[in-house]
Nucleic acid binder design. Sequence first.
DNA 1: CCTATCACCTGCAGGC
DNA 2: TGCCTGCAGGTGATAG
Length: 277
Amino acid sequence: MPELPEVETVRLTLAHLLGNPCIQEVNVRYPNLIETHDSLSFSNILIGKTIKDYKRIGKYLMFDLGDYMLISHLRMEGKYYVQKHCDSYDPKHTHLIIRFENEVELRYHDTRKFGRMYLYKKAIDPYTYPCMKNVGYDVFDERITVAYLWQMLHHRTITLKQALLDQRVMAGVGNIYADEICFALHLHPETNISHLRKSDFECMILETRRILTGASNAGGTTIRSYTSQLGVDGRFQLQLKVHGREKQVCYTCGNLITKIRVGGRGTYYCKECQKKR
DNA sequence: CCTATCACCTGCAGGC
DNA sequence: TGCCTGCAGGTGATAG
């Protein structure tokens, strides 16, 4: 489900709906959700803490608790709901409930149970948290430059799409937007990354940021399971040019969109508009 | 270093 | 209706 734009939408939505509340009670209903602690110690640390700020790196959502940082990765289908304490909830898929003052609750919901949470003592550099071990700079980090991408990628033998999905290189792009970025670059997703020139990396940075910014502004894409609390879901999907459009007409050339598999992932592209290098 | 495959989970669509 | 298969936006481990 969530790629960078969706996580950013969740971040802004939660900041708006919750503000800076104090945690009164924690109910862990699926202990495997928490990677770093057992349910009891996790709860004990959280109770009494205030959410001071909401941050994000790549697809990781971070709740700044002052002396601790709570980190959440939604993986495929994780979602948050903000509701009143008395409301009923889906007991099968609601894995964490955090209650604040005024009977407000933050609930984590995840059908496939792929999502994970991590709790660490706060560090100065967020990239040093253990869960960020294989996470490179965020797409919008100023350290992502042509020289950086060139150094990270030009000698490798992977495809363009695999490079875009590699979170160690640049964090935030997922399967949907990787296809959209390839289309914007007029490049076949299986183009060997070593065939790209420096000018291509320049375009890659610009197009990636342009597409993810557009999606963030639209409130993120909903393909199946993402729902935000502000009702801003499901708009940008209308703007997807190739992903999920197998056998549909390319908006640019009129030919039909093709679906293939790249690195095990469903991949959509236009044979006419996107050529290999 | 790289690829392929599985694993983690559940739901759903499509074929029969 | 029911059963079976394959697939789904992510990531990590493991074997070759």
